[in-house]
C-alpha cells in the first residue's frame, strides 16, 4: 500500500511538472465560462457531455500521450526494475487519471452550483467520473501499447472516438429505435454518458445508469488485467 501511495504521488507530481494538471484544469475553466453563458437548463444538459469530455476523452488521450512520453524518456523501463508489481504501477496510473477526472467534476459541479444553483448527485457523480476516467485511461493505454508512436496512437484514438460516439449520437438523434436504445450502452462513451447523465439529473433510469457504470468497471478491469498488463512490460523493452 505504501508503494502504491508513492507511485500515485509520483504520477500526480509528474502530471503537475509536465503541465498536464494545469492544462486539464484550464480546460475545465473554459467549460465554466460556457456555463456562465448558458441558462440553468442548458447547463444541466451540457454538464454530462462536458464531464465526459474531461474525465473520459481527456483521460484516454492523456494516458496514451503520457505513455509515449515516458517510453521516449526511458522511464517506463526504470520503473519496471523497481521492487513493485507492474499491476501496481498501472493502478497508480488509473488512480491519477481518476483524480484528474474528479478534479474536473469538482470544478464543474462548483460552477453549476454557484452560477445556476444546480445540485448534482455528488456521490454518484464522483463514482461515475472515477469509473469513466479509469476505463478510458485503460483504453488510452491499450491503444498506446498497440502503437509504435504517438502519431499511430492518435489514429487509433480518432477511430475509437468515431466508433464509440456514433451509437450515442444515433441514440440522441432517435436513429436507434427506443426498444434498442440500450445498445448504445455497449460503447464506452454510451455507458459513461448514460451514467453521468443520471448523476446530473438529466435521465431517471437507475438501471441503465447502473449498467453503464458496471460496464465501465468491467472494461477497466479487463483492459488493465489482460492486454495492458501483458503488453506494458514488452512494449517498454522492445526498442
Amino acid at each position: 500500500m505504501n508503494a502504491l501511495i508513492k507511485l500515485f504521488k509520483g504520477e500526480m507530481k509528474r502530471m503537475a511538472s509536465y503541465k498536464i494538471l494545469p492544462v486539464a484544469l484550464g480546460t475545465s475553466l473554459i467549460w465554466v465560462g460556457l456555463f456562465a453563458l448558458l441558462s440553468a437548463m442548458e447547463s444541466r444538459r451540457f454538464a454530462s457531455l462536458l464531464l465526459y469530455t474531461d474525465s473520459g476523452l481527456m483521460s484516454l488521450l492523456l494516458a496514451g500521450a503520457f505513455h509515449h512520453l515516458e517510453r521516449t524518456d526511458g522511464t517506463v523501463k526504470t520503473m519496471l526494475v523497481l521492487p513493485v508489481p507492474t499491476g501496481m504501477i498501472l493502478l497508480a496510473k488509473a488512480m491519477a487519471a481518476a483524480v484528474l477526472g474528479l478534479l474536473s467534476a469538482l470544478v464543474l459541479s462548483l460552477a453549476l452550483f454557484f452560477l445556476h444553483g444546480i445540485r448534482l448527485d455528488y456521490p454518484l457523480l464522483a463514482l461515475f467520473t472515477l469509473l469513466t476516467a479509469a476505463a478510458h485511461a485503460g483504453i488510452g493505454l491499450a491503444l498506446a501499447l498497440r502503437s509504435r508512436d504517438f502519431s499511430a496512437t492518435l489514429g487509433w484514438v480518432m477511430l475509437f472516438m468515431l466508433l464509440s460516439l456514433l451509437p450515442v449520437i444515433l441514440d440522441l438523434t432517435g436513429a436507434i429505435p427506443e426498444s434498442l436504445s440500450w445498445t448504445a450502452l455497449l460503447s464506452p462513451s454510451g455507458a459513461a454518458t448514460e451514467a453521468l447523465d443520471y448523476a446530473a439529473g438529466n435521465v431517471s433510469d437507475p438501471l441503465r445508469a447502473a449498467l453503464g457504470a458496471g460496464w465501465l468497471a468491467l472494461i477497466a478491469l479487463i483492459l488493465y488485467r489482460f492486454p495492458v498488463l501483458r503488453l506494458f512490460r514488452r512494449h517498454a523493452c522492445v526498442e
Binding site: K6, R14, D73, G74, T75, L82, V84
Partner: peptide, 23 residues
Amino acid sequence: FEMPVHFTKLTAMENMNFFRGFY
C-alpha cells in the same frame, strides 16, 4: 541502462528521491 532513464521535467534529486523511496 544505456539510454538515459529519468523524468526530464524533474530535477536529478527529485528523480533520485522518487526511485530510492521504493527500496
